[in-house]
Write a protein that binds this DNA or RNA. Structure first.
Lengths: 117, 117
DNA sequence: TCTATAATTCCATAATTATCGAATCATGGA
DNA sequence: TCCATGATTCGATAATTATGGAATTATAGA
């Protein structure tokens, strides 16, 4: 994953309305939720929701399909996995519990607060 | 981790300058990097960097300590781990590779594109 | 075709965020 | 104390983002 795509994904999630919507879709699973129901649940105007959903879709974190008059949105779990992988590989080096098999060797020998220099 | 803190952390990372700076600090490890050196590396004004670092510090993703005339910034790996844990628990349900032990049971039976309804 | 429903796009406005020069603060050394 | 260096805060400005009403588009049913 390129840094720019990671930033796009992080931006998509870094907003209260969108994170709430995304969590709702994660809860709902592959079946997804209709736009109108999301808007009602979050208590915001449909046009505002469209604005936010378009961010999530553009980042690839959410997919939409039409079902009759409604448009169903569903979380794209694979995309979320890829984001997690990016963060693990690029933002966790040196830590232990962050991700699989990213040893602390990369950051050099562990220096324990050498403020004495 | 509360959703608001997660959003703060995501916002901190969801910006090119800040993500680059954070990755630099992750690379550097616990020893950290002086503010001036970060600004030089990123090619931005010191005042701009301060602005961005304050975001990262406020989110808890980065810590600062003074060393003589310079201020050294270092990644807080624990905070990053906690963010990863939050995302795994709240944004990955139903997926397999996202995190440890979050079974797909939570999202109900896996529905394989039931567009036939 | 007409109507009702669901959603999006368009538009204006408000709010937030990013940028950097200038001024200020903090530290170390002469 | 004075000066130089490193960093932050302040201030103005530019750019981006969020909000919701009104208009538009898409679909289903009468």
């Amino acid at each position: 994953m390129e840094p720019n795509h990671a930033i796009e994904s992080l931006q998509a999630l870094a907003q209260e309305t969108r994170l709430t919507a995304f969590r709702l879709l994660v809860e709902a699973g592959p079946r997804g939720v209709a736009a109108g129901e999301i808007a009602r649940t979050l208590g915001i105007a449909p046009s505002s929701l469209s604005f936010h959903l378009s961010h999530l879709v553009h980042a690839g974190l959410v997919a939409s399909r039409r079902a009759g008059r409604q448009v169903i949105y569903a979380a794209e779990f694979d995309a979320m996995e890829r984001l997690m992988a990016y963060l693990t590989e690029n933002c966790c080096r040196g830590a232990e519990g962050c991700g699989p098999l990213v040893p602390r060797i990369a950051a050099g020998p562990p220096i324990v607060e050498d403020r004495a220099s």
